[in-house]
Amino acid sequence: MDHTGRTGSWKGKDIASGLPIAVEIEDGIVRRIRLVEPEAGLPWLSAGWIDLQVNGCGGGDLNGPRTTAEDVEKTTRWLWSKGVSYYLPTVITASRDRMGASMAAIDEACSSDADIGASIGGIHMEGPYISPIPGPRGAHVPDQVRLPDTEEFEFLQRSANGRIALVTLAPELEGAESLIRTLTGQGIVASIGHSAATSGHISAAANAGATMSTHLGNGSHLELRRHPNYIWDQLAEDRLHAGLIADGHHLPLAVLRTMLRAKGTNAFLVSDCSSLAGMPPGIYSDEIGGKVELREDGYLGVLDQPGIMAGSASTLDQGLLTLLRGLSYSLPEAIALVTERPAAAMGWQGFGRLEPGAPGYLTLFEYDDGGGSEGIRIAETVVNGVSVYRG
C-alpha cells in the first residue's frame, strides 16, 4: 500500500468511451487525463465511488454498544475493498450519549489516520427524530425515538467535532420544520426518512430546505393507501434527491426501475450496509433490529418482525450489478449513480467526476458483462491521490 504521497498516475479504460487513459494526480488533485496506448488487461477506471449511508460492514459496527475508532477503520478498509473511496458513516437512533460517543469515535478515527479522514465526507445522523409508528420507524429502537431538539443536535455536533453533514428526520414531527431550517442554515443536508408524513408535511419540509429522501420506499408502512401517500409525494417533489437501495431486497426491480425513472438525475444509490455485510448467513444479535437473520440470498431482516429489514448486507458493487444486470443499465449510466449523483445531492463540488481539477479519488475495477458469477471485482481504490487498496 502506497502512503508515500498524494501524487501518481493510474491507467484504465474510460467509462464513457472505453478508450485507454492515464489519470495523473498531483497533491491530491487530478491534473491531467490523457489517452495512452492500449494494453491487455486494463481495468475500467471511474471517479471514486461514493456511499452516503453506511452503518458498518465487514464486522465494523458504527452503532454498537461502544463504537471505537477501530470499528471505523475496519469499516473503511472493507469499503475500500468494495470500491468505495468516499462515504458517510451513519449513526442511527440511540441515547444522546451513545450517539455522541459513536460520533466522537468517528472523529477520532479521522484525526488519527489521514487516509481514513480523507475517505469520510462527514457523518450521516439517521434519527432519533423519526416516526415512532411501526413500519416507518423501521428497525430503529422504539424507546429512543424522540422529537427534534435543537439543543441536543448541537451537543451531537460538538461530539462529532462539526462533522455531521446529513440528517434524516420525519418532517411531520413537532419542531421538525424549525430544525430543517437550522440545519440548512448551517450547510447541513436535511433528508426525509422513516416518516409517515402527509403531502403537506413533505411540501413544508422542502420549503424549509430539505433536499433529499433517505432510502426512498423503505422505512415505511408495509401497506399504504393507494394515493396519496408519502412515497408518491416524494417521487413527485423535484426538489428532493433520492437515495435508493438496490440490493435486490429493499426494492423489487419494477419498483426500483419506476423510482429511477421518476427521479431522473436526482436519484442515486446507497448501500445502507450494516456490520453484517460480508458475514456468513445466520442469526445474529445486532444493534439495528436486535435479533436478525441474514439469509443465504443476502436478505437481512428482523427475526420477529416479518417484512422489516435491518439495514443491508450488501455493498455498492452489488447495487451496481442490480442496475447492470437486472435493469440493463449501461456502465456509464450505472456508475453515475455512485459517483456524480450522490456528490450532487450533497453539494460536493468536483467529487464524483473524472476531470482535471477534481479531487483525486478513483475506483478501478473489472466487470464481467458476459453474466459470469464474478460480476464486479475491485482492482484498486484511490483516496486523495493515495492507493489504499489493491485487489
Rank of each mutant, 00 (worst) to 15 (best):
E108I: 00
A114G: 13
G121Y: 02
A94T: 01
S81C: 03
G83V: 11
L79Q: 13
I120L: 12
W80P: 12
S85I: 01
S112F: 08
A118N: 11
S95G: 11
S85P: 05
E108V: 00
A101T: 12
A104E: 02
I92Q: 08
D115V: 09
G121C: 02
I92C: 05
R98M: 13
T90P: 07
Y86Q: 14
K82D: 11
Y87A: 07
R96G: 03
S111D: 09
G100H: 01
S102A: 15
T90C: 05
M99V: 06
G83F: 07
A114I: 14
A94E: 09
G100R: 01
S85F: 02
I92K: 09
M103L: 13
S102W: 11
G121R: 01
T90A: 02
C110F: 04
G83N: 07
S111Y: 01
S95V: 02
M103I: 07
S102G: 14
A94D: 13
I92F: 02
A101Y: 13
T90E: 06
V84H: 03
G83P: 12
L88H: 05
A104D: 00
Y87E: 03
Y87I: 03
A104N: 03
I92A: 04
A109I: 04
P89G: 11
A118S: 13
R98W: 07
D115S: 13
S102M: 11
A104Y: 00
D97N: 02
P89K: 12
V84P: 00
G83S: 07
A104Q: 04
A105W: 01
E108L: 04
T93P: 10
A101V: 12
E108N: 01
D107T: 05
K82A: 15
K82P: 02
V91P: 03
T90S: 10
G117H: 09
D115H: 07
M103Q: 11
A94L: 03
S112P: 10
A94K: 04
L79N: 14
W78A: 15
M99D: 09
L88F: 11
K82L: 09
S81V: 05
A105G: 02
S81I: 03
L88Q: 06
L79P: 15
M99C: 10
A104L: 02
D97S: 04
W80V: 12
S119K: 08
G83K: 08
V84K: 05
A104T: 01
E108Y: 00
S102H: 15
V91Q: 06
G83D: 08
D97Y: 00
K82E: 14
L79F: 14
Y87K: 04
A118I: 04
S111A: 15
T93M: 10
I116R: 06
D115Q: 09
I120W: 11
R96A: 11
